[in-house]
Design a protein around this nucleic acid. Structure first.
Lengths: 140, 140
DNA sequence: AAATTATGTTATGTGCAATAACAGTCGACA
DNA sequence: TGTCGACTGTTATTGCACATAACATAATTT
């Protein structure tokens, strides 16, 4: 029972990401959040007033997919969507949203710390730079 | 427009994997294959006779999700499913399947080479060990 | 003023993964 | 040997992330 793909970085990247994301999802769901929602809360908390489409560009989420996610967060009373333009919607968290974003941040921190601790020390510092090099969005 | 999650390995892992997988999917679709199917062709080619559930365990694909994938490959004439047990199905590629697996392997090789070349030399050797450490399936 | 671009929305489809329930088969073991 | 528990494959259903196309409206460019 041999896996001939085990030497390929892309393959291992996919498998590792899938496993890690499943674990994160199971941790964040106790706050009633999906992975994408937890991320969005962090970004909006750090960038109040950011437009829906700018947020989407930042996270590689397309406008069409951003709409229902943002609407859902608004419907839950976590986020406001204030027309800034006439076409753009500026996003900001409500008090509840800020609180939940903080709780989510604690979960993220714990998860990321656990993850980092699993990496042997001699490889740890190389992971982020290596992954960033694979990630076109940074300089798009 | 600040991304406060950019220092987190898990977050970057997700973003990098998502981007890389989208690119791979667009390359492999020209052979009429999905990512999961291309992977399965490689595993079955290297392990003729492997059972459906053993394949699923190897790839972290559950039995219930394996069934339609395997049935689809069989329906396309790429794979045979031979009862070995009475309950188990042993998988092996047809001649067409072997041919397509080889073509897929060439696409995988090219993709993985491109990917590896994007990683700065000083980080390259660390990526796979670091990712393997995050990946529980290896020693499960 | 007209043409182009940007924003948000709706509708729809795809790929991957999870769960629950079921029938049939195998293995262990009393 | 017969029974019980575990394993295999299947169907049906669901959820999430992501993609495209088409549209109305507003801003920007020229």
């Amino acid at each position: 029972m041999r896996d001939p793909l085990l030497h390929y970085p892309g393959y291992i990247l996919r498998r590792a990401s899938s496993a890690a994301m499943a674990e994160f999802a199971s941790r964040i769901v106790v706050l009633g959040l999906r992975t994408s929602e937890a991320t969005i809360l962090q970004i909006v908390a750090a960038n109040p007033g950011i437009s829906q489409s700018a947020l989407g560009r930042m996270l590689d989420i397309q406008r069409a997919n951003m709409t229902p996610i943002a609407a859902r967060l608004e419907a839950r009373g976590l986020m406001r969507r204030l027309p800034s333009d006439g076409r753009s919607l500026g996003l900001e968290l409500t008090a509840d949203g800020i609180l939940l974003a903080q709780k989510a941040r604690a979960v993220i921190d714990a998860f990321e710390t656990d993850l980092a601790n699993r990496i042997p020390a001699e490889h740890r510092a190389h992971l982020i730079p290596a992954l960033l090099a694979l990630w076109p969005s940074t300089d798009d």
